[in-house]
Each structure stands twice: as C-alpha cells, then as structure tokens.
Amino acid sequence: MEAREILEVCTPILSRHATTDPHVPSVCTTNERYLHTSPEFPMKRLLAAHAEAADVQVQPDIYQIAPVFRAGEYGTYHNPEFTLLEWYRVGMDHRALMDDTLQLLQHIWQTFDRPWQDAQICRYGVEVQARLGCWPEQATVEIIQAYFDQASRSFPSAIATDLDAALDLFMDEFVLPEFPPDSFTILKDYPESQAALSRLGIDEDRRCVAERFEVYYGSLELGNGFHELTDPLEQRQRFEDDLRKRKTLGEPSMPMDTLLLDALMAGMPECAGIALGLNRLQMALGGYDSIKQVLSFDDQRA
C-alpha cells in the first residue's frame, strides 16, 4: 500500500447507520448503534470530503484494515467477526482494480514463496449460459430447479420465486466447485439484479451487467470489488429497493446512511473499491480448511 502511495485511514466501527443490503445482517447494539459490516460508507465519505477540500492538490487513494461484523454468520468459512482489507483507487474502473488486486495477491504469494499461476477470468453470465442455456436475467427459478433435479441435488422449495437466491445456490453448487483448486479466479459481470453498490455497464455481448467482480482462491470467495456507484439518486433508489426487499423477506429495516447520500450529492470522485477477507486470505495462503484455524478464538469460544 505504501509503495502505491495508498493512504491508511481509520473510520468508526460503531455507527448510527447500517447497510440496507438484505443479505448482510448487522449487529445492533443496545443504544441504537450498529457495528459496521464493512468500512465502505465512511471511506467513501472521506473520498468525497477530500474532493471538496479546495486546498488539496492530489486526491489520495485510501485503504483500511478493520474488524467487521455480520450477525449470525458462522461455519467452516464464516465467523461473525472477521477482518477486511478494503481499498479505493480514484480514477480506476473495475477492470483496472482487478489487475491492481491480482498484483497485490501475486506480491503476497511471492513474498511467502508460494507458486503463482495466472488468474482465470470468468464471466458470470457465460458460466450460467453454458449450463442453463440462457443468460441469468432470462433464467427462472423453474429452469434452475429443473437443473438441480436433473443432477439429483437438493433444491430448497422455500426459495419460491427468489431468482437471485436460486442463482446464488446454483453458482455455489455447480460453478464455484469447477474453479481450478490452487489458483485465483475472478468472476466478473454480475447480473444487474446483483449490482449491490456497483455501477451498471454494457458487456462484450451488449448486455446490461453490474461492474462488479469477486476474487476466488479455488472455490473460496476472498473479495468483492466494484466500479463504484457515484450517482446519489440511484444510490438512494437502491437503498429503498433494499429496504423493500428486507420487508418482503421479513428482515428488520435499517437506517440508511443519509450521510453517504449527502457526500455523494456533494460529489465523490470516480473510483473503484474492493474488500478482501484477510482471514480467508490467510486460509488460502496457509492451506487451512477452516476459518477457525486462523482465528485465536472463534465465535463459539469468544
């Protein structure tokens, strides 16, 4: 980070606002504060604040290593408290950030004398198309369920009409296990419905996709990167869509980060950002099977 002149920052862990993402559960404290699930919102506010300050000549890139919290996520690869390395590169898009990320990973791998193989780049839509015969946005829960039935794999009926949930399980069952085991894979061009906080763009097949990517080591998800959405109106719209989906799913409503919306209104520079799970990176580096092996005390013993 120092070599690339990326400035270390520190932002609050405890916040009045929380993510609205229906599938990212925040830990709520007793005095109506939330433990952050990622330092994304305040880091973006810092980018906007710098851009606004007249006496700043250079817009710095920023990074942070922080403990983050996701309520109830516990398993072989999950712990409710884990550590993220998150960084933002001003003026970069998601493609440039993919290279930036792979360069960091290659540097780490070489530092620890681990053999490096060039990463495989996959497109979400193409992976779906190759198996289901249709693009993700044309798929239906019925088509996906039929694929599971044919492969004699269990498909939960509770998915009902939730296409994104069906796609999530489909990727986990059929696509991720086929990634090469001891090297990195980047999965890019997510369906528009899974854009989260990324902007939308057009892919080489002239389909509308999210400018979002994920990094995997084997089938282990390590990080998620965005060409960041900077439009305050679209950002508000996505927060509101999230809250509506939360209501449908019976998940609690969350106070959307209006301070982030204000910052976007004032103007955030065009940038790309990524969060890497450091515990999982340690697992990949050390060849560990469980996140417990890289934690001093996991949730059950904390």
Partner: peptide
C-alpha cells in the same frame, strides 16, 4: 453454512432417515 458475501444464505445438511437408515443431502434456505 453456505453464503456468498452478498447473497442468500443456505444450510446444506446431510440427514439420516430414521425409518430407513438412508442418508441424503438436503439444502435449506
């Protein structure tokens, strides 16, 4: 526990039918 960083969580279980003894995989949302 199965969950993409941004997406639906699932519980992928193996269950034994206590009447027949058969073990099958069963995934729950």
């Amino acid at each position: 526990f199965v969950k993409p960083g941004k997406g639906q969580a699932f519980a992928r279980t193996r269950v034994r039918n206590l009447k027949t003894g058969r073990v099958v995989e069963r995934t729950f949302k």
